[in-house]
């Protein structure tokens, strides 16, 4: 068993993440179950709907139509997919992406790894693939948690639509994870990478959220990965292939950029 998972960089990197991934999965499933458990009381309470009706206009613009808040999609969007899911996927992905090269470089083990007959490109692609696999694992945990919760409280929601929304989260994570990978490849410094990527995450989140409110920002909102994550409302309408392709394309671009940067750089001791 151990021998098999030590076969290559991809499997070994995945193995290293197994404990983290397991805990993340447990946490995400628990979060889903707890959130969904409150849905029936939300649905049945008129007061909530009225509360949202009275909310200021800008909240409606940012978070969507309040009358939807008591529907399954509206509830899950507001409680989980609007902010919680992106935060979780970003933290997870940035931690993986920054650790893959910069983390190993700072730990000093990159010398040993790169002294093997592997090209840097190969090492990097295997590590990027393991990050993506871990993200898919987290997406799967999210989906399982929501599906279990929905079944438990009789929430009327399509499992396929849930999968669409979870996958959109995976793609968003892939964008920021591969951005962190690229910054880590350029700088070799994990702390810096985490800081810059997280700042870009927060910045682009607000860019997308505020763009509909401020006319001059309207066009710029489309530069934010968060726009492609949920503007097409995957939970309601299914995955928008165009938006998914933008996210996947951005992730692929950052991975390619990582290869380019990593291949040209001196490895620090």
């Amino acid at each position: 068993m151990v021998r098999a998972v030590l076969r290559n960089v991809f499997l070994k990197s995945l193995r290293e993440q197994r404990a983290a991934l397991a805990w993340w999965a447990v946490g995400v499933i628990a979060l889903c179950l707890m959130t969904v458990a409150f849905y029936p009381s939300m649905r049945d309470s008129r007061g909530m709907a009225e509360y949202f009706e009275e909310a200021p206009e800008w909240i409606k613009t940012v978070m969507g139509d309040p009358s939807e808040f008591t529907t399954p999609t509206g509830y899950l969007n507001g409680e989980l997919f609007f902010m919680m899911v992106p935060i979780l996927f970003l933290i997870f992905a940035i931690s993986r992406g920054s650790g893959a090269i910069a983390g190993e470089e700072q730990a000093g083990t990159l010398d040993l790894l790169l002294s093997n007959p592997l090209s840097r490109r190969r090492v990097l692609l295997e590590k990027a693939a393991s990050m993506l696999a871990a993200l898919l694992g987290l997406g799967l945990a999210l989906w399982v948690g929501l599906a279990l919760g929905a079944a438990a409280v009789g929430m009327d929601i399509s499992l396929l639509r849930l999968a669409d929304a979870c996958f959109s989260g995976v793609l968003l994570g892939a964008v920021f994870g591969s951005l962190a990978l690229a910054l880590g490849c350029a700088s070799g410094r994990r702390g810096l990478t985490i800081g810059v990527t997280a700042a870009l995450g927060v910045g682009t989140f607000f860019l997308k959220s505020l763009a509909p409110l401020i006319e001059s920002l309207e066009v710029w909102g489309k530069l934010s990965p968060f726009y492609y994550y949920d503007a097409a409302q995957p939970l309601k309408n299914g995955l928008s292939w165009a938006h998914a392709a933008v996210l996947a394309g951005a992730a692929a671009f950052f991975v390619a950029l990582s290869v380019f940067l990593f291949d040209r750089r001196d490895i620090a001791v």
């Binding site: 151990v2 960089v9 070994k12 000093g108 083990t109 010398d111 040993l112 007959p117």
Partner: peptide, 25 residues
């Protein structure tokens, strides 16, 4: 190659690390 500033994967056992590096070769 033996690096001067040798850093190994701390969480593996010596045997696991050697298997891994052998597999990469």
């Amino acid at each position: 190659y033996l690096p001067g500033e040798l850093a190994l994967y701390d969480r593996m056992t010596g045997g696991e690390l050697l298997r891994y590096l052998a597999n990469l070769r």
